[in-house]
Design a protein around this nucleic acid. Structure first.
Lengths: 143, 143
DNA sequence: AGTGTTCCTGCAAGTATTCGCAAAAAGTCG
DNA sequence: CGACTTTTTGCGAATACTTGCAGGAACACT
């Protein structure tokens, strides 16, 4: 199974025009096997735990690169660190409640429709792979 | 005029529940009188040029605070630095072309409609004061 | 496998951003 | 104008993130 994953990851990397390297596979593996968001240092820790070694700067570079290819989503909530999660090309959008801090999923439909409207009115092809919308969730809204 | 600006800024700060301090007025002043986006170090330079002195850490704190009150918008394009601009509570949205790097305005209507749809489907009250949408602009799209 | 080209990575800085704490300023009330 | 309470600020670290460069690895071709 690990190999299946790895194989898929390799394929994804290749079709994104990237070389299949140890560093990328390790980072991908850590993200794939962690639920929720992970910070850069969390990824680093994960790699070390798996007895691997990658330099800090490489982790940052790989994360930025995977973000650019759409395999990984980068979020910046209020915190001091950015966080990352494996999305493997699927669009992935968040509603982040500024009251309780909870994060939920936003349906892609709405975003697609929005992108469509942007294209129509501005001629701009939005590449909204990953949005973080701040606001107040239903539960907190009631109080 | 400078006084009028300052007066307005003071009022805005007060109604946001913030104290009117020298540091905040200076940062606001620099942002108000610069067109386009300014980095944190740019703000610092602006303050120094106006013969003022504020600590670096204060600039960051003030910027984060003004961002939270909605007076300032924070953007992170591909660059290493975040950039800021004075928006004084008005919503302000950007279309950022990843090809040519150009940034244009996105009409608030579309965003409002989107926010409405989010509320309807998710019960989530979006506070979209400032969005940055990445994508490809019309001109670059044609090539 | 051997060679060449191009992309990636580690290392060692460098820059950007945040934090803790004590002193100073802002707002409040009498 | 004081005295008092709460927020801000400066300073000095600490942490988060980026970059330049030279060696190492991936891939394509033979």
């Amino acid at each position: 199974m690990a190999e299946l994953h790895e194989h898929n990851t390799a394929t994804l990397l290749r079709s994104a025009g990237r070389r299949v390297t140890n560093a990328r596979l390790q980072v991908a593996h850590v993200l794939q096997h962690s639920r929720g968001h992970l910070s850069a240092s969390g990824v680093l820790a994960g790699v070390r735990q798996a007895d691997g070694h990658i330099d800090q700067s490489t982790v940052y570079r790989v994360l930025a690169d995977l973000r650019d290819t759409g395999l990984v989503a980068e979020s910046r909530f209020g915190n001091s660190e950015a966080t990352y999660e494996w999305i493997a090309g699927d669009d992935h959008h968040h509603l982040h409640c500024v009251e309780c801090g909870e994060t939920t999923q936003l349906s892609s439909d709405l975003v697609d429709r929005f992108d469509g409207a942007v294209l129509e009115q501005h001629g701009f092809r939005a590449e909204n792979r990953h949005m973080v919308i701040n606001g107040v969730c239903e539960r907190c809204s009631v109080e």
